[in-house]
């Protein structure tokens, strides 16, 4: 009898799901078996993907089939790759720092530019534009509502930022306190941050619940297919 691939996949999937759910009774060998196998399989999968979708097309192909320019340009990352591989050796790990320095330096530049151009300026601008009542009316929002919402968002943004200001000065009794206005603003900011984190929490729960639903649905499907096939 030849088992269809879906059935095999379903069986394996069901087994691993049960093994993971066994964690509810505590950390047990079945759970560990599933996790260790999962980590190994994932790592093997990632290694295969990195080789087939990064090393081969971006490094091997240019070196083998590319033009002279492509070969020259591919030789440098090849050298850097060898340096990174030396990181495995504790004695030669220092050489890998050069490559890591390159990655860190380039990454820092990308982060700086992205933060400024992609978040800071647009978000500050959006906070201001909230009071553009004409634009709000254009999208069907009343002026009062737009003004109120803009005010809430503005206060929420400012107070939340103030909350993360931890500068303080010592008092006469030796205790450290923030400046009075900042303390008040930070107190309000905590409310906004609490609301935001509550929303995030609800989103995480929703995502987890959806995952649980998907797992239970797959078990149901597995049994449905199993009994349907037999």
């Amino acid at each position: 009898m030849i088992f269809p691939p879906d059935l095999i996949t379903g069986v394996i999937s069901f087994i691993f799901t049960i093994l993971i759910f066994s964690y509810l009774i505590g950390d047990n060998p079945l759970f560990r078996i599933a996790v260790y196998i999962f980590v190994g399989v994932s790592a093997g999968y990632v290694a295969a993907i990195a080789l087939w979708q990064v090393i081969v097309p971006r490094l091997i192909y240019p070196l083998v089939f590319g033009s002279m320019n492509e070969k020259i340009f591919a030789a440098i990352p090849l050298l850097g790759s060898l340096f990174i591989l030396l990181k495995v050796s504790s004695r030669m790990a220092g050489v890998a720092r050069m490559t890591m320095a390159f990655l860190v330096g380039a990454g820092a530049a990308v982060i700086v530019a992205g933060a400024v151009m992609g978040t800071l300026i647009p978000q500050v601008g959006a906070t201001i534009n909230f009071f553009d009542l004409n634009a709000a009316v254009a999208v069907g929002i009343s002026k009062g509502e737009a003004f109120g919402n803009g005010l809430v968002v503005l206060f929420g943004t400012i107070f939340s930022l103030v909350y993360f200001h931890f500068g303080a000065s010592p008092k006469a009794d030796g205790s450290m306190h923030r400046f009075g206005l900042i303390e008040i603003a930070a107190w309000v900011g905590r409310i906004f941050i609490g609301i935001t984190l509550g929303a995030v929490f609800a989103g995480v729960y929703a995502a987890a619940l959806t995952a649980l639903i998907e797992r239970i649905a797959s078990i149901i499907n597995f049994f449905a297919n199993l009994f349907g096939n037999f």
């Binding site: 095999i8 999937s13 799901t17 649980l212 797992r215």
Partner: peptide, 16 residues
């Protein structure tokens, strides 16, 4: 579909 997705999704489900 047999190992990676079920394990990760089940772990995520336990998070509930």
């Amino acid at each position: 579909n047999g190992i990676i997705v079920p394990v990760e999704a089940a772990l995520m489900g336990l998070l509930t």
